[in-house]
Design a protein around this nucleic acid. Structure first.
Length: 472
RNA sequence: GGCGACGUAGCCAAGUGGCAAGGCAGAGGUCUGCAAAACCUCCAUCCCCAGUUCGAUUCUGGGCGUCGCCUCCA
């Protein structure tokens, strides 16, 4: 098992080796809790989840830190309009974030630090940067001096000349040495006190800039140098570039060994999903439209590779739902099957091959879509073998192992159906009696009645089965 | 303008210098009281043009198209 990950820093797939054997420290850029997370945000968060799960599959112990940005311009604006403080304003969205993560079955991180709870760490880092000449105070604000960090731009492969050419000018309200310099600390503005958005600092009362929180909090939880840092591609520049500049200048050590960036989710139109474009679809919206959160999960992590753009569409979500349904059916079928007397040796060895190929695909920069393709190939073959009683003890065990290994990433096949409710069982028995008596009209009536309530019946050789289905 | 991605069947999508995974949708069939599920069969000269090569969807160059980043952004 050799895990290879595409490192934005090198631009290549590199064999992953953690700083400390057997342990991975990873920092992932979390939500700004100014609103509900949209599906594009969720894609990034589920990408972190997939990475986490594959690291676990490779036997690593993980310290995963995901920040919650609970102070930023949008939050200030919204809190002001709502006439409340930022900490009050943010609460429901923090709750919603964790609800979404749970609904999507994302494994929890070890730490979810909030920016406002780590102001001292930020102040310490800003002070160091000032001492070292990497930052300067201008009219109460503190800026990072990009000219002091020659490696700036190494991550996003942008050169400074290019930055200047594209930089917006004249909209800057502050005195900066260079248009590219970014704020570490912003002087308190009128109204900030009422919003609860101002803190004391050696360089004057104010609030932190956006980028410093990730540098300060990752250092606090993971140290000066750690293994993995993730985010969406749009954070590569300037956010991650700025983090590198801050952390390496302040700590005098390399910051992050492997940078991973997930691609955007596009709207149905093909354009990037963002608030400015108007399209802003949340998990709640999708659920309200009748989509299963697990179908959303499958679509976001298994439909396409994390570094390729995907487009949200009803068709794609429906296809994902069908795939989830098929996998669940298969897993249930294998679990409740009895080992046959006959063993299909070709199938047994094919299962071994597929298991190996699956794990290899995941080790190859988390290629879950490829892995899933292999799995479906085997699902068909195994279903046929089950039809013909050719799955013996060994084959069944192999399939169960494969299901577990795949579900270690997908997490859509577990969660046993609740036991047969008495009423459903009674109705099934009633219908069976009707069928025995060839009263098919009555049998169909019962089946239709259950379907109306979201329960589908299937007559199989092994008896009647029921399962929950979505309405309509 | 600068930098960078992508273009594979009706839709989504993986992939490789050597007869193009998988899923959805569709068509026909097996099984079934009818369904459902499952299985079987069918459904692609990989955007265009050159070049390299015994051989290119895969490499190189050019073109067309779509999209992203260039300090709100996952």
């Amino acid at each position: 098992m050799t895990l290879r990950l595409h490192n934005t820093l090198t631009g290549t797939k590199d064999v992953f080796e953690p700083l400390e054997p057997g342990h991975v420290g990873m920092y992932t850029c979390g939500p700004t809790v100014w609103n509900f997370a949209h599906v594009g945000n969720l894609r990034a968060f589920l990408f972190y989840d997939l990475l986490r799960r594959q690291l676990s599959a490779n036997g690593y112990r993980i310290t995963h830190v995901m920040n919650l940005t609970d102070i930023d311009d949008r939050i200030l604006d919204q809190a002001m309009h709502a006439g409340t403080t930022i900490s009050e304003y943010v609460k429901p969205f923090v709750t919603a974030f964790f609800e979404d993560m749970r609904a999507l079955r994302a494994q929890p991180a070890e730490h979810y630090p909030k920016a406002t709870e780590h102001i001292p760490e930020m102040l310490a880092m800003i002070s160091t940067l000032l001492e070292r000449g990497n930052a300067y105070v201008a009219d109460g604000d503190v800026y990072y001096r990009i000219a002091s960090f020659p490696r700036y731009g190494a991550l996003s492969h942008l050169d400074r000349a290019g930055l200047k050419a594209g930089a917006r000018v004249s909209t800057d309200k502050y005195e900066k040495e260079d248009v590219s310099d970014f704020a570490l600390w912003k002087k308190a503005q009128l109204g900030d006190e009422e919003l609860g958005a101002a803190w004391d600092a050696p360089f004057g009362r104010g609030r932190p800039g956006w980028h410093i929180e990730c540098s300060a909090m990752s250092k606090h939880y993971l140290g000066d140098t750690f293994d993995i840092h993730c985010g969406g591609v749009d954070l590569m520049f300037p956010h991650h570039e700025n983090e590198i500049a801050q952390s390496e200048a302040a700590n005098g050590k390399p910051f992050v060994r492997v940078w991973l960036h997930s691609e955007h989710l596009a709207e149905p139109s093909g354009e990037k999903m963002s608030k400015s474009a108007g399209g802003f679809i949340t998990l709640r919206d999708l659920i309200a439209a009748g989509h299963d959160p697990l179908a959303v999960r499958f679509f976001l992590i298994a439909n396409a590779h994390y570094r390729s753009r995907i487009r949200l569409s009803t068709e794609a979500l429906h296809a994902a739902a069908e795939q989830v349904r098929r996998l669940r059916e298969f897993a249930d079928r294998v679990r409740r099957s009895q080992p046959a007397a006959n063993e299909d040796d070709a199938l047994v060895s094919h299962i071994v091959e597929i298991r190996a190929a699956y794990s290899e695909a995941l080790d190859d920069d988390l290629n879950l879509p490829q892995g899933i393709g292999l799995v479906f190939e085997l699902v068909r073959e195994a279903n046929a073998a089950l039809d013909n009683n050719r799955v013996g003890t060994e084959g069944r065990r192999g399939l169960l192992n494969l299901i577990d290994e795949v579900d270690a990433h997908l997490d859509v096949m577990g969660g046993e159906e609740p036991g047969l409710a008495d009423e459903v069982e009674r109705l099934i028995a009633e219908r069976e009696a009707a069928r025995q008596a060839k009263d098919f009209a009555r049998a169909d009536l019962i089946r239709e009645g259950l379907k109306q309530r979201g329960i589908a019946l299937e007559d199989s050789r092994d008896g009647v089965r029921w399962r929950r289905v979505s309405h309509g």
